[in-house]
């Protein structure tokens, strides 16, 4: 499953991150790498982006980016 499919409060482990390119690079630079624990904190009031907790801090990602991140719960 992907990060997009997870519900707020759910936690998982990152497996892989989509296509090569600047966005993937940015996501990995920010600590979302294979093996990292990731938790959905909440969804923004207008429905997008998401707030996740990874490596002890809060990160926001758009849903389109969350779809690229495959996770294991």
């Amino acid at each position: 499953m992907t990060l997009y499919d997870m519900k707020p409060g759910q936690e998982g482990t990152v497996r892989s991150i989509g296509e090569k390119g600047p966005t993937r690079k940015r996501i990995m630079d920010m600590g979302v790498t294979p093996g990292a624990r990731i938790k959905i904190v909440k969804v923004a009031p207008l429905g997008d982006p998401l707030e996740v907790n990874v490596r002890g801090y809060e990160l926001s990602l758009r849903k389109a980016e969350a779809k690229q991140i495959s996770v294991e719960c």
């Binding site: 940015r26 996501i27 707030e51 809060e58 926001s60």
Partner: peptide, 12 residues
């Protein structure tokens, strides 16, 4: 602009 992203820290 190429596809922008919103990978941003939400600080304490």
């Amino acid at each position: 602009s190429t596809a922008s992203n919103f990978v941003m820290e939400l600080p304490q």
